[in-house]
Simulated assay, not measured.
Amino acid sequence: MALPRPSSPRALTKDLRLFLLGGGRHKILVAVAAILMPVIIVLGFIKDARTNILPGRSITYIQSWPANRSDEEIIAQQKIDQKKKEIADAKRRAEWQRLAKQLGM
């Protein structure tokens, strides 16, 4: 089975012009919407692909500890760090609970 011959660009533009001029304003609006929808989708994918992957400056703070620390010092520091973490978690939980109350959940 033979495939049909492709149309020339001139014939395509003439056909499109006759189609758009031959009817009401709704054809132009639908044509614009049909062109914009895939463009918006493709731009959304492009924007999403660039989210959170572009290189940037990142500062990481690392504490330096002496090599001759005793186990008691390590345990004491871990307890201090645990209390700080529990306070931060409680604050975050309170914020989420306040938001839930505002939203009626």
Rank of each mutant, 00 (worst) to 15 (best):
M1C: 12
M1G: 14
L3R: 12
L3G: 08
L3T: 12
P4A: 06
S8A: 14
P9V: 01
R10Q: 12
A11N: 11
L12Q: 14
L12S: 11
T13H: 10
T13S: 13
K14P: 02
K14Q: 15
L16W: 05
R17H: 14
R17Y: 10
L18A: 15
L20G: 06
G22Y: 00
G22R: 00
G24A: 10
G24W: 02
G24L: 07
G24H: 06
R25Y: 10
H26V: 09
H26F: 10
H26P: 00
L29K: 09
V30S: 13
A34D: 04
V39D: 00
V39M: 02
I40Y: 02
L43A: 05
G44A: 01
F45S: 02
F45K: 03
D48S: 15
N52A: 08
I53Y: 01
L54S: 06
G56K: 06
G56W: 00
R57Q: 14
S58Q: 13
S58H: 13
S58V: 12
T60I: 14
I62L: 11
Q63C: 04
S64V: 15
W65S: 14
P66Q: 07
A67W: 04
N68C: 06
R69P: 01
D71W: 11
E73S: 09
I74V: 15
I75S: 05
A76L: 11
Q78I: 07
K79S: 10
K79V: 08
Q82F: 04
K85W: 03
E86F: 00
E86N: 04
D89H: 04
D89N: 08
D89Y: 03
D89S: 06
A90K: 06
K91F: 03
R92K: 13
R92Q: 10
R92M: 10
R93F: 04
A94K: 07
E95Y: 08
E95C: 06
W96E: 13
Q97F: 15
R98S: 15
A100T: 07
A100C: 10
A100W: 04
M105H: 07
